[in-house]
């Protein structure tokens, strides 16, 4: 079990996270934590038109939550911000290569996606509340 989880790539992203750090003048910053285990993630975005021009994360927590956040930033950089709403739990689990996590650990893997979706909603909430509301409704079921 653990041999499957703590593979080289997870440990690599845990110890050498990509796109980790602060961002000067982000267009949106969002923070959330997992009250169960205390994992924390902040995501900062710069948006150009509808494109994610720059993405950075900060956080602390287990290897799964931090590696998942690191891999997520690589996955979405340069993509349209609204496309985030279509990302599913399975997309994330496949992206990090952990498809058989138990219910407790799945929350660790999905925390960064939750934060990113909140960030997307907040970004549009400032511009166009109606579309933000729709994005929020469409993003349910996380």
């Amino acid at each position: 079990m653990s041999d499957d989880i703590y593979r080289e790539i997870i440990l690599d992203h845990y110890r050498n996270p990509r796109n980790k750090g602060k961002m000067a003048n982000p267009d949106v910053s969002i923070h959330d934590s997992n009250p169960l285990c205390g994992d924390e993630i902040d995501i900062h975005l710069k948006v150009d038109g509808d494109k994610i021009k720059d993405i950075k994360f900060e956080g602390r927590g287990c290897a799964i939550s931090q590696a998942s956040a690191s891999m997520l930033t690589e996955m979405v950089a340069g993509k349209p911000l609204t496309s985030i709403k279509d990302l599913t739990k399975d997309d994330i689990l496949e992206n990090i290569g952990l498809t058989n996590l138990g219910p407790a650990r799945i929350k660790c893997a999905l925390l960064s996606l939750k934060v990113l979706k909140l960030g997307m909603v907040q970004y549009y909430a400032n511009k166009d509340p109606a579309s933000a509301k729709k994005l929020q409704d469409d993003s349910k079921g996380l």
Partner: peptide, 10 residues
């Protein structure tokens, strides 16, 4: 640098 949740999983 093993996070406690990872340790608990192991």
């Amino acid at each position: 640098d093993i996070h406690p949740h990872d340790l608990a999983t192991i």
